[in-house]
């Protein structure tokens, strides 16, 4: 049963557009899928390989800008951004990997944190190229209806999930986890840790960039503050994975569902809606304290808590 669960979820999602949900619900579902992709992508590097990044907005934003700039300067469809972002993100990941992956632990995390901010400031200032804070607007949207956007991001999510599944059950996956558990031991067992960390970063970067390119097409407007922010992208990415469960297949998807719905619910509340980041922060602290492996990793613990609670109340 557990083996077929992803396939069942995928099939159900395929049928969703026929149910006739409102545009708003479809929008939420699209966001959930997009965050699942970003979470799964981050998970390759941060969850399995153990290299925690606080700068995934850089990959997301560069993916989005790849699509946007193709449209803006070459006048071709922003959908070309999807394949183009693979090339651009590979190049970017190689450069970043070369510089940052010689750092370990907290130093790597700090370097990536800086990276996201560097990208934002660069995009703000390269006005001729990126239109700076004016942002890039796609004047003619591909579809008014959400259906095809939904199917496209569903397809990207399914491909991402499959890639991760295949990778993690191969030599690469074993090497990623070996590096996470003990880099020196991995090195002395014949694993070229720098090389495999770079591969992990490239995979993670490319998949995140694809989500970014999709975002450009879907939202039709980007500016540096929207696609490169530390809080709304980089930190939320980490939270999606931490809440759902790092280094699990389903974790990022669960995390994406929770975070997107939570964000919507909190934003709609009167008075405290503006404080949604504060609330996110408090949730993160509780998750780290009580469910350090996230919901997918610690669900047994969750069951236990609920059972105890039920027994107490009955």
């Amino acid at each position: 049963m557990k083996k077929y669960l992803p396939l069942i979820i995928f099939t159900v999602l395929l049928a969703v557009p026929f149910i006739g949900f409102s545009t708003y619900i479809m929008h939420i579902l699209i966001l959930v899928l997009m965050w699942s992709v970003i979470g799964m992508a981050w998970n390759i590097l941060g969850g399995y390989t153990g290299q925690v990044s606080f700068g995934h907005a850089a990959f997301f934003g560069v993916g989005a800008y790849t699509a946007g700039i193709l449209y803006q300067h070459l006048g071709i469809s922003a959908w070309w951004g999807l394949p183009a972002s693979i090339v651009v993100l590979t190049a970017l990941s190689l450069v970043i990997g070369y510089i940052c992956l010689r750092l370990r632990g907290a130093y790597f995390a700090l370097a990536t944190l800086a990276l996201g901010e560097i990208c934002r400031v660069t995009a703000e200032n390269l006005v001729d190229f990126t239109r700076g804070n004016l942002g890039i607007l796609i004047k003619e949207r591909t579809w008014v209806d959400k259906t095809w956007y939904f199917y496209i991001i569903l397809f990207i999510a399914a491909v991402t999930y499959s890639i991760i599944k295949i990778v993690m059950e191969s030599k690469l996956g074993y090497y990623f986890v070996a590096i996470r558990e003990d880099q020196d031991a991995a090195e002395s067992l014949g694993i070229d840790t720098t090389f495999y960390k770079t591969i992990s970063l490239c995979l993670s970067g490319i998949l995140t960039g694809t989500a970014g390119a999709f975002y450009m097409n879907y939202m039709g407007y980007i500016d540096p503050g929207v696609v490169f922010p530390l809080y709304d992208i980089s930190i939320v990415t980490v939270m999606v994975v931490m809440v759902g469960g790092a280094a699990t297949y389903g974790g990022p998807v669960i995390g994406a569902v929770i975070m997107v719905f939570l964000a919507e619910v909190i934003r709609s509340l009167p008075h405290i809606g503006a404080a949604h980041q504060t609330i996110f922060g408090i949730i993160l602290i509780f998750i780290i304290m009580f469910l350090p492996n996230g919901i997918a990793g610690d669900y047994l613990k969750l069951f236990k808590i609920f059972r105890k609670h039920n027994r107490a109340s009955s």
Binding site: Y174, Y175, V177, A178, E181, D182, A185, G190
Partner: peptide, 17 residues
């Protein structure tokens, strides 16, 4: 320094690769 969160078999598979 075993790879702590991996099973014994997976540990050895990782190096056999």
């Amino acid at each position: 320094r075993p790879l702590q969160r991996m099973s014994v078999l997976d540990n050895v598979i990782a190096s056999a690769f």
